[in-house]
Design a protein around this nucleic acid. Structure first.
Lengths: 245, 245
DNA sequence: GAGTGGTCTAGACCACGAG
DNA sequence: TCGTGGTCTAGACCACTCA
């Protein structure tokens, strides 16, 4: 069936995890035990572990063990669904903590925002957790010249959509949104903050919101593990014609 | 600087490739030579090679060697840019070959298209190449009940946008488009057709086009290596208000 | 047949975490 | 201190490609 040794092991481990033999939050047997169990060398066992780690099934912690990851649902990034209340239909195990910080624009962020390097910005950091495991990170930048908003205390969405509502309440109206999606490997820092493997695909979403004066009022950099993320866009040809008219 | 041995090696190889010391299309030194050069064991060398392979810098061919990949530009999937002519502004080294095939809908495709399982479809296969290296794959399904189109002979886009123009010419008008983007690891088959490593992040775009009668007229499954792909979406709040009115 | 990459082994040493 | 995972080594055998 499975040709490669490590494929056979990862298939078997995957089955155990999906069936619940190895429960979420608990460690699977130590690598030494797996070596005996599958009569394989350590590198072979570790290749199998790396595979299922990159699939989002495992969190490996140095000195502690290899733990079954809690399986959150898919985080859907959807511009069409303007959910009024982030709390609605939210799993209570899903937690998003928001922190607020004042910084100065570095060159890359400044270029996108269209402000001088060193301009004062507010950085909102949305860190999403599902039980004990992290699953999302969003950094949102709003120039002080545009608005200074309070960080939402509760019901924050993982992708920071609520900032745009807050902007609207502050009298800043978004007219156009440009979104860019890429798929890439995580940086070393991202492997830590998202608790993913170095080989786990990652989805990065960059959202730029513009107001009527073509001023960039918000830049969002959202980073999600590929195994629990999708982005959905709906486009109506009708509205394009209306716009042209 | 570099703590890990394999990181040091991959950094060095990456530098050589980007500087052009190792030219595109040519093989880098054999693994045995790299072992001597960096005084490292084979597994260590191979981890370094896997890393830069997953970044899209290397194509490894069993029995032949490890070749520097030609660097195509980024393939941008952009719904907003309706390029009338695919030939315009296309690098001549970029080739897209299209083949046409008649099949029957399997259950997953049938469910999305909203047709019975076993319905007759046309499958258009867009395979993109940059010089000798593949870089894109798009499979597009159109039910026979909707239209039977000729495969475009030239100037095809990597993402198969021209099918929708062909539909329009055939009197089938797309009113709404739903696009879904995910980031994941490639299947074994995809590693071969795209010549990417098993650990290379991949962007999959699913596009569903709907006509005025809410009939699905086209399903596109576009698969691109993450290292050379991005998806861009532009959304205007203004049109949303127009639509509501 | 010679050279290449693909897979696996057995074992060593180090770094981290918890008691 | 001990058990865990993180890294690396030296070497073997196999599979593929090309002359």
């Amino acid at each position: 069936m499975a040709q490669n040794r490590h494929v056979h092991i990862s298939n078997d481990l995957r089955r155990h995890i999906k069936r619940g033999t190895y429960a979420p939050g608990t460690p699977i047997p130590a690598e030494s035990a797996l070596m005996e169990q599958y009569r394989a060398s350590r590198p072979t066992v570790r290749i199998a572990l790396a595979q299922i780690e990159n699939e989002g099934l495992l969190i490996r912690i140095h000195g502690r063990g290899n733990f079954v990851r809690h399986q959150p649902g898919i985080v859907t990034y959807d511009t069409a669904s303007h959910v009024a209340d982030g709390c609605a239909a939210m799993d209570t195990a899903l937690q998003v903590s928001v922190s607020k910080r004042t910084t100065k624009a570095k060159d890359d962020v400044a270029a996108i925002l269209g402000v001088p390097v060193g301009s004062v910005l507010t950085e909102y950091r949305y860190q999403g957790h599902y039980l004990t495991d992290p699953y999302s990170l969003a950094l949102i930048y709003v120039p002080h010249a545009v608005a200074v908003l309070e960080a939402p205390t509760h019901c924050a969405t993982p992708t920071g959509e609520d900032i745009r509502e807050a902007l609207s309440r502050a009298g800043v109206h978004v007219v156009e949104t440009r979104t860019r999606v890429v798929s890439r490997l995580p940086s070393q820092e991202e492997t830590k903050t998202l608790a993913i493997g170095a080989g786990a695909p990652l989805m990065e979403i960059r959202r730029v919101s513009v107001d009527a004066e073509s001023r960039v009022v918000e830049l969002a950099r959202i980073v999600l593990p590929g195994f629990s993320a999708e982005a959905v866009f709906t486009e109506s040809t009708r509205t394009r014609e209306l716009e042209a008219a």
